[in-house]
Deep mutational scan, measured.
Amino acid sequence: MTLTLTVPPGAKVRVRITNENGETTEIEVEPGETVTITLPAGSTVRVEVEVVDPDGRKRTETFTLKP
C-alpha cells in the first residue's frame, strides 16, 4: 500500500506514521515536494498529517489505514 502526498507551495507538512507495535516514523515534506510512502503490507497504520500554511495556521488530519 502506498500513500502519496503533494505539498502545495508555501505549506509545510509533517507526517507521523504509527504501526500496530506503536513504532512511529516521522517525516517532514518541504513546500512543492511530492513524496510517496510505502506502508507495510497487511498492517494497520495510523497516519497523522500536520499542515502549516504560509500564514502560520496549523491543521491536523488523522486517519487509519487497514489492509
Rank of each mutant, 00 (worst) to 15 (best):
D53G: 12
V13L: 02
V45M: 04
V51D: 01
E26A: 06
G32I: 15
T64Q: 03
D53A: 03
K66R: 03
P9K: 09
I27K: 09
E30R: 11
L65T: 00
E33L: 10
T60A: 00
G56H: 00
D55L: 02
P67I: 15
R46W: 06
D55M: 03
P54V: 07
P9L: 04
T60Y: 10
E61A: 13
T36F: 12
G10K: 10
D53I: 00
R14K: 05
T36E: 14
V45D: 02
A11V: 01
V13D: 01
I37N: 15
T38S: 06
R16C: 04
T24Q: 09
E33W: 09
G32M: 14
R14P: 02
E30A: 06
G42D: 11
V49M: 03
R14L: 09
E26M: 04
D55R: 01
V29W: 14
L3P: 08
E50F: 01
P67F: 15
T4V: 09
V7P: 01
T18I: 15
E23P: 09
P31F: 09
A11I: 01
P54R: 06
K12C: 10
N21G: 09
T38Q: 07
E23M: 07
T4W: 14
L5S: 02
P9S: 07
D53F: 15
F63D: 15
S43L: 13
L3F: 06
G42C: 15
T44Q: 04
A11Q: 01
K58Y: 02
N19I: 14
T18Q: 10
P9G: 07
G56I: 00
V13F: 02
G42I: 12
R16V: 03
A11L: 00
R14F: 12
P54Y: 04
R16I: 03
V13Y: 01
R46L: 10
L5F: 11
K66W: 15
V47R: 00
L39K: 03
G10Y: 03
I27P: 15
T6F: 13
T62F: 07
R46C: 05
T4L: 10
E48N: 02
L65Y: 14
P31E: 06
A41I: 13
E33K: 09
V47F: 02
E33T: 11
T60V: 10
T4A: 09
T34M: 11
T62V: 13
E23T: 07
T2M: 10
L3R: 02
T2R: 08
T25V: 13
E20L: 07
V51C: 04
E30I: 14
M1L: 07
T62E: 06
R46P: 01
N21E: 06
A41P: 05
T25Y: 10
D53T: 10
T64N: 03
P31L: 15
V52K: 02
I27V: 08
V7A: 01
V29R: 10
K12V: 07
V35S: 08
I37V: 10
E30M: 05
G56Y: 00
T24K: 08
T34D: 08
G10F: 03
E48Y: 02
V29S: 10
G22Q: 09
T24M: 07
R46E: 05
E33S: 14
P54I: 05
V52N: 02
T25Q: 09
P67V: 15
E23D: 08
P31D: 11
E48A: 03
N19E: 09
T6M: 12
I27Y: 12
T18S: 08
E61I: 15
T38A: 09
N21I: 10
E61N: 02
K58W: 02
E28F: 03
K58G: 01
E28Q: 11
T6E: 10
R14D: 08
F63I: 15
I27M: 11
E30G: 03
T4Y: 13
G42P: 09
E28S: 08
P40H: 13
R57C: 07
P54T: 05
T44L: 09
T18N: 09
G32V: 15
A11P: 01
K12F: 10
K12E: 14
V47N: 00
I17M: 12
L65R: 00
T4E: 05
E26H: 06
G32Y: 13
L3T: 03
R16K: 04
T2L: 10
G56L: 00
P8D: 13
E20Q: 06
I37K: 13
E30F: 07
R57F: 04
M1C: 14
V47E: 00
V29H: 08
G22K: 09
E26Y: 04
P40R: 14
R16T: 03
V15A: 05
G56D: 00
L5D: 01
T18M: 07
K58I: 13
T44S: 06
V7H: 09
V51Y: 14
E61D: 03
E23Y: 10
T36R: 10
S43K: 14
T4S: 06
V29N: 14
V47G: 07
T36W: 13
P31K: 12
T34S: 07
T6C: 15
T2A: 07
E48T: 08
P40Q: 12
T64L: 12
E50C: 03
K12P: 02
V29I: 05
V51R: 02
T60C: 13
V29A: 04
T64C: 15
R59G: 00
P8R: 11
V45W: 14
L39C: 13
T36G: 08
V52T: 14
V29K: 09
I37Y: 12
T18L: 09
E28D: 11
V51T: 12
K12A: 11
E33P: 11
R59H: 11
T64S: 01
T60S: 02
E20H: 07
D55T: 02
T38I: 06
S43H: 09
T60P: 00
P40F: 14
T6A: 10
K66I: 15
L39M: 10
E28V: 02
P31W: 08
L3N: 02
V47C: 02
K58L: 04
E23A: 06
I17C: 11
G42Q: 13
I17V: 09
G56T: 00
R14H: 04
V7F: 15
T4G: 05
P67S: 11
G10I: 04
F63V: 15
P54Q: 09
V29L: 08
T44M: 10
A11T: 03
V47W: 01
E28K: 08
T38P: 08
P67K: 01
V51P: 00
P8H: 13
V49F: 03
E28H: 07
G10E: 11
V47D: 00
V7D: 02
E30N: 05
T25C: 13
S43T: 10
P40W: 15
T24P: 07
P8N: 12
E61C: 15
T62R: 02
T24G: 11
P67T: 14
L65P: 03
K58A: 03
P8A: 12
P40E: 12
L3Y: 07
E20W: 09
L5K: 01
P31G: 09
E50Q: 04
P9A: 09
V51H: 04
V29Y: 09
V15Q: 03
N21L: 06
V45S: 03
I37M: 09
M1Y: 13
N21M: 07
E26W: 06
D55G: 01
S43A: 13
R57A: 02
V49L: 04
S43C: 12
